[in-house]
Design a protein around this nucleic acid. Structure first.
Lengths: 161, 161
DNA sequence: GGTTATCAGTTGATGTATCAACTCAAGGTA
DNA sequence: TACCTTGAGTTGATACATCAACTGATAACC
């Protein structure tokens, strides 16, 4: 695994600078988003994504593994999180009728109401930190760039549309 | 704090798409990097950054708060992490001579050797996932974009150079 | 038709992050 | 000098993520 040190193509100055900026972004942005959501709504960003993923699905329902993919998390993580959300009665779970292995999660009315309340603040934060910081052109560039990187990181999920 | 729902400027289609791509990136990339480092070297990405930050400092030493800023983490987080690194004898800590409040962390020879061993694999992964996924032009765009977002998220740290 | 394999999810142990409370040192201030 | 204040780090409780082991249901095979 560890190749010899002299064989390594170290990063050039510009490459390093770009990478450090991206690394900074990866560290700081999730924290900032989590902070706002936690403070204003008592939600994790991941929990928010779960609720949002359910809210935009037919019948506000979605099977667990599908939801995990949407929220970019492992099935295990999702299971723990949904358990918590269930305790808050934002979500209910039940096995699918046709296949007993499958669990379907459904957003309750209370969960939907909670999401509707949390959404504006979150969207405003995303706008403030990301969208409004960039020109429309940069935003388009960003999407292309992020998708290309994602393709390498996780070839299984080529990205929507 | 929670503004009325109708006042919210929701995200346009393109904005949403770009944001979802970025969100996916923020979730997946850290995990992928952590995975490689953990598997090949038993290091967190954060721990790696701490060691790397020390290695490139004069005397391989740096005060804690400075190091925390470099690694994009809180002082508390750094303190915990350095304690662990100290237990592995990769780092030592001692109070500064002139000011007893300040703690200086120093990379040991063992820590340096360990970093030298871990670096090639990490750099190769960064290259594979990020650098080589993009054209030089995109890389330049990415740096600009990331810096602009970072400026909003954390105005205190305008970014290097 | 019974056995085995695979799939979807869950659970519990462990490790790590986070927050608030704390310690200890240095600067003021009177 | 005694007192308060601020700054730098540490610590411990709690919450969350991760991994491996597990359960139960369906599908595949002979």
């Amino acid at each position: 695994m560890a190749e010899r040190n002299e064989d390594t193509r170290w990063l050039e100055r510009d490459e390093l600078a770009a990478w450090m900026s991206l690394a900074g972004l990866m560290f700081k942005l999730p924290g900032a988003l989590d902070y706002q959501l936690q403070r204003d709504s008592g939600l994790t960003h991941f929990e928010y994504l779960v609720l949002a993923g359910l809210s935009e699905s037919p019948d506000r329902s979605r099977r667990m593994s599908d939801l995990a993919g949407f929220a970019n998390g492992s099935l295990s993580r999702l299971s723990h999180v949904v358990k918590r959300l269930e305790r808050r009665s934002f979500v209910v779970r039940r096995p699918a009728e046709d296949d007993g292995r499958i669990t379907v999660a459904t957003l309750t009315d209370a969960g939907y109401a909670f999401l509707v309340d949390a959404a504006p603040g979150h969207v405003r934060t995303v706008r403030e930190y990301v969208i409004d910081a960039l020109t429309p052109e940069q935003l388009a560039q960003l999407k292309v760039i992020a998708d290309q990187i994602l393709q390498r990181v996780d070839p299984g999920k080529p990205c929507s549309e």
